[in-house]
Amino acid sequence: MDRPGTDLAVVAALARMRLAARRTGNRVRLRGATPELRQLLELTGLAGEFEWEPEEGEESGGIQE
């Protein structure tokens, strides 16, 4: 994540993807998300809308703080 405008565009695209998935009865699972993306989704209140594939050393079930 280099620029704030780019960061917000990524969050907006993920939000639209999540909405489209919900409308069709599907879910979105994020894998390999950077810590910065995770933090940004937390700040925007969207982190709970996604399933997170656990990273190495992380337990299944969500974001490790």
Rank of each mutant, 00 (worst) to 15 (best):
T6R: 13
T44L: 00
L43N: 06
R18E: 11
Q64E: 15
L19T: 06
M1Y: 13
L30E: 04
R22V: 08
G61E: 06
A21S: 14
S60N: 07
E53W: 11
G45C: 02
Q64W: 09
E53F: 08
A13P: 11
L8F: 04
R3F: 15
L46H: 08
R23H: 10
T24C: 05
E53K: 05
A47V: 07
M17F: 05
E55A: 15
A13K: 10
R3H: 14
A9T: 14
G32H: 04
P4T: 00
E65C: 02
T44K: 00
T24R: 12
E53V: 09
I63H: 07
G61Y: 00
L14G: 02
G32K: 03
E49C: 13
A9F: 07
R23E: 10
G32P: 10
V11W: 02
G45L: 04
V11Q: 06
N26W: 07
T6S: 11
V10W: 12
E36M: 08
A33V: 07
E53I: 03
A12S: 15
Q64S: 15
E65T: 08
A15Q: 10
A20E: 15
P35G: 07
L41S: 06
E36G: 12
A47H: 11
L43T: 04
D7Q: 15
D2N: 14
A47N: 03
A33Y: 04
A33Q: 02
E59K: 09
G5D: 14
R31G: 13
R31L: 06
G57L: 01
A20F: 03
R31M: 04
G25T: 02
E59V: 06
P54I: 03
G25D: 03
M1G: 15
A20K: 10
A15V: 08
V10L: 13
E56M: 07
L19P: 01
R27N: 11
L37H: 03
G45P: 07
R22A: 12
T24S: 13
A13D: 15
E58Y: 00
T24H: 14
R31C: 10
I63L: 15
P4K: 01
M17Y: 07
G48F: 01
R29E: 12
E65G: 15
L43Y: 01
